[in-house]
């Protein structure tokens, strides 16, 4: 199956700064793809290049199976919905009128406006001027604009920004179920890892303009093997035993922390500790959360 979004060696250079450096994205069809990175990593710039708002210094963008050129750009974008950085909205027009402008430009029938207003729960405020909307309402309006016309591809930059917890939950449900309901692919960026963990199937991690990881979320979690925590009755007997086996162990809060080890080595180490008479009580595996994986991934880059 053709990826819905594919980039090759995508670069953007601003003066001396490489905002985006050789980014290769592969977004499969019908999934929710989480594009994760800290602030300033190059997420927004990459997304702008996906939409043709910014010209890449180098590299290629393929959208919906076709390389994006000036000629087919608008035709391709007609099948996408986007929300980049802050939401758009003419303050002097009502929410409904704003959607009318977008719907008319997209060639979408006006009836669709009712549908998207229901989805984002703005139907009651449709006749209020956007200038009077709260931040959350403007965010929801921006998403409504992206949803007009039931696009095949949604490109959303921090869609839960400014929403309250209930709103975040609703947004998450909406986006997670979108592929199965409409067959759309959802490309979401965020710096909130907890969110991503619950939403995304595929993830791409970017930092300082470079892709650090791309693949299924589960694959990332497989890298999440963390330390082991070994609780013993007499740690002073355990430490020499471990050191003899070449296992660096730290004593923290009355328990020993062992680095990630393959199963065989782990079993042998525990055996050694038991033989030393330390008294093995409890062995727990600590799984790294996405956050820790992310931090360790990005920090190793920085150490460079």
């Amino acid at each position: 199956m053709q990826p819905v979004i594919e980039t090759q060696e995508l670069c953007k250079v601003y003066g001396q700064r490489r905002a985006v450096d050789g980014v290769e994205l592969h977004v499969p069809e019908g999934c929710v793809y989480g594009f994760i990175g800290p602030n300033g990593a190059g997420k927004s710039t990459t997304m702008k290049m996906l939409l043709g708002l910014v010209h890449p210094t180098a590299g290629r963008v393929c959208l919906l199976g076709q390389p994006m050129t000036e000629r087919n750009r608008l035709a391709l974008l007609r099948q996408t919905g986007s929300l980049i950085e802050s939401p758009s909205g003419y303050p002097h027009l009502t929410g409904e009128e704003n959607l009318q402008v977008v719907a008319d430009l997209k060639g979408v029938p006006r009836k669709d406006i009712d549908r998207v207003l229901e989805i984002v729960d703005l139907a009651g405020d449709r006749r209020r001027k956007v200038g009077q909307y709260s931040l959350g309402m403007r965010q929801r309006l921006g998403i409504a604009m992206a949803l007009l016309g039931s696009p095949r591809l949604l490109i959303l930059d921090e869609p839960t920004n400014g929403l309250d917890p209930a709103g975040i939950q609703e947004m998450r449900d909406l986006l997670v179920h979108m592929p199965e309901r409409t067959g759309a692919t959802v490309f979401v960026s965020s710096h909130l890892l907890g969110e991503m963990e619950q939403m995304a199937e595929q993830v791409g991690i970017i930092d300082h303009g470079k892709m650090l990881f791309e693949g299924p979320l589960q694959a990332l979690q497989r890298h999440s093997r963390g330390n082991y925590r070994l609780r013993v009755l007499q740690p002073q007997k355990a430490v020499p035993a471990l050191q003899a086996r070449g296992v660096p162990a730290r004593l923290e809060k009355g328990a020993l922390t062992l680095p990630p080890l393959p199963d065989a080595a782990l079993a042998a180490a525990v055996q050694a500790v038991a033989d030393a008479g330390a008294g093995v009580v409890e062995l727990t595996a600590h799984t790294k959360s996405l956050e820790e994986i992310f931090l360790s991934l990005t920090q190793t880059r920085e150490v460079k």
């Binding site: 043709g52 708002l53 974008l77 980049i84 758009s88 909205g89 003419y90 430009l105 604009m145």
Partner: peptide
């Protein structure tokens, strides 16, 4: 200025040439 006030250019450029 209406476009700047509404932060619309980045959306408009995906909808029309």
């Amino acid at each position: 200025d209406v476009e700047e006030k509404g932060d619309f250019p980045k959306l408009l450029y995906t909808l029309q040439s």
